[in-house]
Write a protein that binds this DNA or RNA. Sequence first.
DNA 1: AGGCGCTACATCGACATCGATGTATTGTCG
DNA 2: CGACAATACATCGATGTCGATGTAGCGCCT
Lengths: 184, 184
Amino acid sequence: MRHNAAMLELAILGFLHDAPLHGYELRKRIAALTGHVKPVAESTLYPAIKRLERAGLLARRTQPGAGAAPRHVLTLTAEGRTELRRRLAHPADVDITDENRWFTVLAFLRHLDDASAQTEVLERRMAFLRRPSSFFYEGDRPLRAEEVEDPFRRGILTIARATSQAELSWLRRTLDTLRAATDG
Amino acid sequence: MRHNAAMLELAILGFLHDAPLHGYELRKRIAALTGHVKPVAESTLYPAIKRLERAGLLARRTQPGAGAAPRHVLTLTAEGRTELRRRLAHPADVDITDENRWFTVLAFLRHLDDASAQTEVLERRMAFLRRPSSFFYEGDRPLRAEEVEDPFRRGILTIARATSQAELSWLRRTLDTLRAATDG
DNA sequence: AGGCGCTACATCGACATCGATGTATTGTCG
DNA sequence: CGACAATACATCGATGTCGATGTAGCGCCT
């Protein structure tokens, strides 16, 4: 399974868990979720739908008329729902580290109805954000923004740090709430 | 030209503009720059080097011994330097909107020695960040964090907003400095 | 002496991506 | 009335990506 494919498939499964949709509508929702960053071509989406259908994760009913060409309304099968939860509970490492993929996981994490499984996923992201890392190194030592002269490279470090802090504080708040719900 | 390829090639050209390197060292630098987010496979890097070599953008000198296998030390050609500046001056839209690609552009933007060209690129990013956009919509209207019930989706919007504000304030500061340098 | 890991590159096949192009209908604008 | 955009899908070919695997030398540990 390729990486991008995995993310696209997760988005398809996630949106279909919300409600049955046809391909065109699915495409619009995916465009809203990740499209302002990187649009998805139709010729990528339709093959992905076919893959999932062949794998028995979704079923299509053909609806004539309505708009123009006959619509294929897509519904998640029981296996599809199971597979969605499986993927949400155990995302690949790239899904944790790449912000775009991470946001896709977050967008559907509520479908993982087990609060402790949700906690586990959030903790993986937290561990990643806490690992000391930079974009530039001196030997093995990660450089801090203050140590970099180039203003653009400093910008990268400055922005990354702000993002990381904002997300960490959100993660702490959310994990507190989740744990309170689990314990209480 | 494919999108990922374009970014990988930009990173190769950019690092080689800093200094001549062999493939293995190049790989480590790219891993530091973008690898904690998404690692680059060797079997992706070496073909990319070959493409650039065929295009006359870089040259290789074979150095025997040193470590183990003979090293191929890569140097940018004059056309390579020109091409790097061309790509930095006119990044594709995805390079502006996708944070990972944007950071790659930023990491080498100093090689674009024309301050007004640098300004232009930063302004494109600024325009993108200012466009009202969300990850979730009600019809055509982008939803704000407060309007979303799901805590995880709220998180996406909260984090994205914080990131966006941090970057906008950095952009404003940097653009001021750049413009002062150009006018003065 | 043998194994492991690192350096340093290369090839191959399976597969995903994307732009181009095609088909067909409905609605809108001038 | 013709052009054009939007809806809704589909196919094809060129190309890029990635994991697996191979080769080869060196240093280190036991």
